[in-house]
Write a protein that binds this DNA or RNA. Structure first.
Length: 621
RNA sequence: GGCUCCGUGGCUUAAUUGGAUAGAGCACCUGACUACGGAUCAGGAGGUUAAAGGUUCGAGUCCUUUCGGAGUCACCA
């Protein structure tokens, strides 16, 4: 039982005994006492006035006396207004520290026997990854790490959008203009190479479109279709898709290519495979740079026909209905989700049909009780519909579905738009934060005597810590403004600030070892006698104590920012402790050993917590 | 227009899910090492939590309305 649970059950029992009322565990839950008051946990007694018929302060006093008498872990209490502040005995904290000291797995919960699948990243294969993908990947990755630490068996999967008109554009442009160039021959990273052809296609298409606008044919269409309130410019902007589909030569060629692909034309398939392979190689390098990996890739080219049997089932069971033209719909109006097409009148599937099929397929593959989709909030409606349909179909995993919806990333200059070239490229970004770390490190000169290899490894860890922490510390649902300048900050509420706490500990532990003070030689039984701990020490231990609960709630909420905030708070408490109290020159040998042990435990917790965010800790910096 | 989400000092954000005087960081100002790493710490200034009502012992959090921003409402993905 945790101390929280001990207090909670004691409060319930005490209220029952004192006032004869059975209260909910919610009402008995202790909160963390605010810093300005003495105490570790606080019980709010206002709700008890209803049945106790006494003033909150009196209840708090009675309850406090009762608890301190009956709960050995509690030392004393004080009452401020209706708030009962409980002080946990020092021995409880020192015992706890002795218990976790040296346990590198502290913070990781035992296996719970459940499986969760987390889908994230899911890129298109026609261009390189950008900042939006980075947020997605970091969220997905840290969620998977957190779930694993919370006891789940985790499957990390990705759906690759490897087919469709977009990749055909890259293919066509390469075929027409590349003259056999390859990533190898040009020295361009292979996913960027493919993206370049996509960009070229768009340029050529724009040229063609502009020429057409001035032509007789273009002017004729303008005359026929322009609405009175539209300017010529606005008309052509809105008409772009129709032009692509109905008039454009390049558009026609791209669509023909898609048809050939769907017909299984060998040459087209070969080219498609080549282009995609280039992209995968490039993505792979980016994933590696970010330190993430996947257990399974699903390819849209293999899943886009799925789901038709589900449609049949749904029709049979009355979840779907068929219109006269043959299209199939789900009526979700009673869930305020309107009507939704699940199959076109020509019998082909739409996006959501595929997702229905994919969900079923993945359940068959892994049998996971929970499935999490890390997808931007622009698809909120889509997932509401998807989950609602799966629920109505009676799928066994329907209750465990979750859309981890996150806000899009904006730049200080506004929205990222690939067409306008305002996207921040993932590879550039990674290189930039590492370069920035290098710059800062040069000024400090701490790493000078280390090997080049060692230095590079450290700088990589620092740069990525800055980037990752900057993104993950923000709650997922919040739309965020990404300022590249701030993302490379190394001071304040940042990844490197937390790494620095770890590095300081490592440095002290090295010095301690030189002095013959091996933390491993410190016996827990010797520590538990330690009493009268300093407030800074107490704060640190209490903070350590919260790690498992933090992991648990972060997993339950699928919210990595909770772990990020925890790490920051812990590092902050450590820095305070470190400047206020001397470790190696503590007054007594016991105090020295105690503080060393505390340092070791903090280092472990920091490494574990940051590890859950995909952030590595350097030994020096 | 319907539905959904967001709005917290100049900027970026937190608030243990309804609890105490809204907590941090950046930027600004002032201090702190012949001491274990100053990428640190302490202090100062900066707030009507977009606005107005309501619910109650208690509201940044829940309800209503208004304002502002975003997303979505395809036989696209």
């Amino acid at each position: 039982m945790t101390i929280n649970e001990i207090i909670q059950t004691a409060v319930i029992a005490a209220i029952k005994e004192l006032y004869g009322e059975t209260i909910s565990s919610e009402q008995a839950a202790p909160a963390v006492t605010r810093k300005e008051f003495e105490g570790d946990f606080t019980i709010v007694t206002f709700p008890f006035t209803r049945f106790a018929k006494k003033k909150p302060g009196e209840i708090a006093a009675e309850l406090g006396a009762h608890l301190v008498k009956n709960v050995p872990q509690l030392d004393r209490f004080n009452v401020v207004q209706g708030f009962l502040n409980l002080v946990v005995a020092d021995s409880f904290w020192t015992d706890f520290l002795a218990q976790i000291a040296g346990n590198e797995h502290f913070g990781r919960l035992p296996k719970n026997g459940q499986k969760v699948m987390i889908e994230f990243c899911s890129p298109n294969t026609n261009k390189p990854l950008h900042l939006g993908h980075v947020r997605n990947i970091l969220l997905g990755w840290s969620c998977s790490q957190i779930c694993e630490a919370a006891g789940y068996e985790v499957k990390k999967v990705q759906v690759v959008n490897d087919r469709g008109i977009a990749i055909c554009k890259s293919m066509l442009a390469w075929q027409k203009f590349a003259e056999g160039a390859t990533p190898e021959s040009t020295g361009i990273k292979s996913d960027h190479f493919v993206g370049d052809w996509y960009v070229l296609f768009e340029q050529k298409f724009q040229e063609e479109y502009r020429a057409w606008q001035a032509s007789a044919a273009g002017q004729r269409v303008l005359g026929e279709k322009r609405k009175p309130e539209q300017s010529d410019e606005q008309f052509f902007k809105d008409f772009k898709n129709s032009y692509f589909n109905e008039h454009s030569n390049l558009g026609g060629e791209a669509r023909e290519m898609l048809l050939r692909w769907e017909a299984g034309d060998p040459d087209t398939k070969a080219l498609w495979q080549q282009m995609n392979q280039w992209v995968y190689d490039g993505f792979g390098a980016t994933y590696e740079a970010l330190g993430v990996s996947f257990d399974r890739f699903y390819y849209e080219s293999e899943t886009y026909l799925l789901g038709k049997d589900i449609v049949e089932q749904g029709l049979a069971s009355g979840v779907f209905y068929k219109k006269e033209d043959g299209s199939v719909w789900a009526d979700l109006t009673d869930a305020k989700l309107d009507h939704k097409v699940v199959m076109r009148s020509d019998g082909t599937s739409v996006y959501i049909t595929q997702d229905l099929g994919t969900a079923q397929m993945r359940y068959k593959d892994f049998g996971t009780e929970k499935m999490v989709y890390v997808v931007a909030d622009e698809q909120n409606y889509h997932f509401q519909v998807l989950f609602e349909i799966l629920k109505r179909l009676g799928e066994p995993y329907a209750a465990g579905l979750h859309h981890l919806s996150y806000g899009m990333v904006d730049l200080p200059s506004g929205k990222m738009k690939s067409r306008e070239g305002t996207v921040v490229d993932a590879d550039d970004l990674i290189a930039e934060v590492i370069a920035e770390a290098k710059e800062a490190s040069k000024e400090r000169g701490e790493l000078a005597e280390l090997s080049k290899e060692n230095q590079d490894d450290i700088l990589r860890k620092i740069g990525l810590a800055a980037l990752k922490f900057h993104i993950i510390k923000v709650g997922p649902q919040k739309r965020m403004v990404f300022d590249p300048k701030e993302s490379v900050d190394l001071q304040g509420q940042t990844g490197p600030h937390i790494q620095y706490a770890y590095v300081r500990i490592k440095s002290v532990l090295r010095k301690a070892a030189d002095l013959g003070l091996e933390p491993s030689a410190i016996r827990p039984d010797r520590m538990s006698g330690q009493s009268a701990i300093e407030p800074q020490e107490r704060e640190l231990i209490a903070q350590l104590y919260r790690l498992p609960a933090t992991v648990e709630t972060a997993a339950a909420n699928y919210d990595p920012s909770e772990v990020a905030n925890y790490c920051y708070d812990l590092a902050k408490a450590f820095h305070k402790f470190f400047t206020d109290l001397s470790i190696l020159k503590a007054d007594t040998e016991v105090a020295k050993a105690f503080r060393l042990q505390l340092c070791g435990a903090v280092a472990n917790a920091l490494r574990t917590g940051m590890g859950l965010l995909g952030i590595e800790m350097p030994e020096r910096m």
